[in-house]
Structure formats: structure tokens, C-alpha cells
Design a protein around this nucleic acid. Sequence first.
DNA 1: TTCTTGCATTCCTTGACTGGAATATAACTG
DNA 2: CAGTTATATTCCAGTCAAGGAATGCAAGAA
Lengths: 106, 106
Amino acid sequence: MSDAALWSALADPHRRAIVALLLERPRPVGEIVEACGLSQPSTSKHLKVLREAGLVRVRQDAQRRVYALDPAPIAALDAWLEPYRRLWNRSLDALGRRLDETSDDT
Amino acid sequence: MSDAALWSALADPHRRAIVALLLERPRPVGEIVEACGLSQPSTSKHLKVLREAGLVRVRQDAQRRVYALDPAPIAALDAWLEPYRRLWNRSLDALGRRLDETSDDT
DNA sequence: TTCTTGCATTCCTTGACTGGAATATAACTG
DNA sequence: CAGTTATATTCCAGTCAAGGAATGCAAGAA
């Protein structure tokens, strides 16, 4: 659940695809394998990385394992993003002011 | 500026540290080298990755190159995060409801 | 218990990334 | 122009992650 694990988990495009799949609804491994076009072992390894980063949780259903998103780490990302978002808003403000000034020329 | 470049640029902890440094203020390479404790070449390579991901911009000042954050890619990350943030809010709501119900027991 | 299904783990190979040392380059200085 | 400063690039290991094939393992079915 460390920050580093979170970032490196999401750095991989296949894992981001899995996360997006799980955003729609929880799914068993088989569905994920089919959807992302990787081999089953490879998919299982990605799921392990996501699990260890705290991004997904597993529930056992007979022989199947149903994976679901855990929303908590998202909050961590959001918190990381916060100061940058402030920077972004400031620059939007600056752009707005510049546009206002420019509009005086017309 | 692709999504993939953005994620893999931020996947590295040194690069996140550089980004955090530049959040405070723009800095020349020398300062960044000193602050993150890497060799100058290694730092320059990280800066190149950040540049190619669109996260930073360079301004030349005599022999120095002053790097600054470009706030635009932050918006992309924020957009990516949006649907997950909604999920997170839903789960907070659910938690709130459960706590409300539990409070009836007292 | 034996067979099958669904998933995890191990082994191995390959390709990508990282860091430092050495080197190149561009801009200022005298 | 020669020298110096600030940064980028190249070269070269060492490390690590990713993918497939083969294998292991647990849970149900017969």
C-alpha cells in the first residue's frame, strides 16, 4: 500500500486496463483474461501486483476468484495530486486574466 | 504527451521527487542535482523523460537551463482519476449509511 | 477417490530502465 | 581564441519487470 507500489502498479497499461474493467463491476479472473488478451498466468501476476498495491480485493466464489476494486488507494492518488491541481487552477486563472486583457484590444 | 508516457514518467520515485521540487519553484539543473542526490547525467536523463512526457518545460538562462512544471498533464491525470473518485464517494456514502444504522444500537 | 475446472506459482528468456563514468556541446569569460 | 561553466549525450554494465510454458494446488463434480 506504499505510494511507490501504487505508482508502479498503475504504470503498466495492462494493469490500468484491468482496473478500468473492475470499475464497471467485479469480475472473476477468467473474464479478465479474456478481456485483456493476455495469458492466464500473466494476468494472474498482474492481479497479484494490484493486490499488493491495495488496489483490488479478492472474494472466493466456489473455484472462482472474483476481483473488485478497492477505492481507498484512489484517495491517496487524489491527495498526491492536490497541490498540483492548485497549480493548475492558478495557471487557468492567469490564462483567464490574460484573455480578459486581450479582449480589451477589440 | 501520451497517457502511457505520463504514467511511466511518474512511476519513478526520483522523477516524482523532481516534480515535487519544481512544484515549489522553477529550478536550474544544478539545484535539482544537488537536491535529489543523483549524478548530473542521471538527473539530466530524468529531466528528459519528464520533458518528453510534457510534465516540465525548459527555459534557457545564459548557460543554465531552468526547468519548470507544466500544469497541463496534471489535468489529464485528474481526468483519469475522475470515475474512480466517483466510486470512492459512493463507498464513502455507503460507509456513512452503515455508521448511521449502527448508531441506532446505542 | 479420481477427474476437471479455475487460478496461482515457478522457471526461463528477453527487453527495458537505471546509474555512473566518460565525453560532447553550448554559452559565457578573459 | 582558449578556458570554464552548465548541461546533454553516449557507452556500458547491472537490475528488474513482463510474458509464455509448464507445473502446482484448491475446490467442486462424478
